[in-house]
Amino acid sequence: MFAYEFMCTAFVAAFLAALVCGPVGWFLVLRGQSFASHALSHVGFAGAAAALLWGEPAFLGFGLSAVLSGMGMGVASDRFVGRDVMIGLVLSLAMGTGALCLHFLTHSAGAATALLFGDILGIAPSSLYWLGALAIGCVMGLAVMSRPLLFASLQPEVAEAKGVNLRLLDVLFLALVGIASAMCSQITGVLLVFTLMVAPAAASLRLGFGPMQGMAAAFALALFEAWGGLCLSWLTDCPASFWIALLGSVVFAAANGIAHLRGR
C-alpha cells in the first residue's frame, strides 16, 4: 500500500496529527475540558465552509476560526460556567451556518462529507510541509508552557499565588486546542475530532502514567489509532474515520480493563 503516494501522504499526515493531538488531548482530559475540542471543531466547521465559499482552503478557515474562538473562550472562561444551553445554541448556530455556506457551494455534497467525516486520502502531498511546520510549532509551544500549565490545571489557587497567569495559560492552551482540532479534522473530519484527541489521552490517564510518560503514551495510542485506521481502511475499503473511531473506543475500553484489573 506504500506504493501509492496518497497512502504515504496519509500516513505522514496521520503521524503529525497524532503528535499534536496526543499531548494536547492529555491536558484537555486532565483539565476536564474535553468538550472544548468538540466545540472548537464545530466552530471550525463553519469557518471551513465559509472559506470554501470564498475560494480559500478549508483548512485555513477551520484553523483561524477554531484558534480565534479558542482564545475567546479562554478570555471569557468565567462566563461560560453553567451556560450549557447557550453554548449548545452557539454550536448549533455554527453548524447551521456551515450548512448554509455549503448550500451555496456548487459541489457541496463531496465537500460536506470531507469536512464532516474527513478525507485523509485526499490530502495533497504539498500540504505536508505546513502541516509539519504547524505540528512542530504546536509541540514546541506545549513544551514551553507545559510545566506552568500542569500546575495551573492541578492547583489553580496555589499556582495563582505563585505568580502563574491562569488567564494567559487558558488562552494559549485553547489556541493550541484550536490548531490541534484543525489538524485532527484533516484526518477524522469535524465530527470525529473527539476520537483522536480525547480517547487516547483518556486511556493514557487511566493507565496511571505521570505527565511526561502520559503525554508520550497518548501520542503512541493516537498514532496506533490513526495508522491502524488507515491500514484497516485499506484492507476493508471502509472509511478510515470509521476504523479510527472504533479503535478509539477499543483503546479506551482496554485501558479501563487494565486499570480495573490493577484495582485502580
Binding site: V144, M145, R147, F151, A152, L154, V158, A159, K162, M212
Partner: peptide, 18 residues
C-alpha cells in the same frame, strides 16, 4: 494522577518548560 505528581506540579511550577 498520582499523589506524587500532584505535589511535584507545585515545585517551581511557574517556570516555563516541561
Amino acid at each position: 494522577l498520582s499523589g506524587w505528581h500532584m505535589v511535584a506540579a507545585a515545585l517551581r511550577g511557574r517556570v516555563w518548560g516541561v
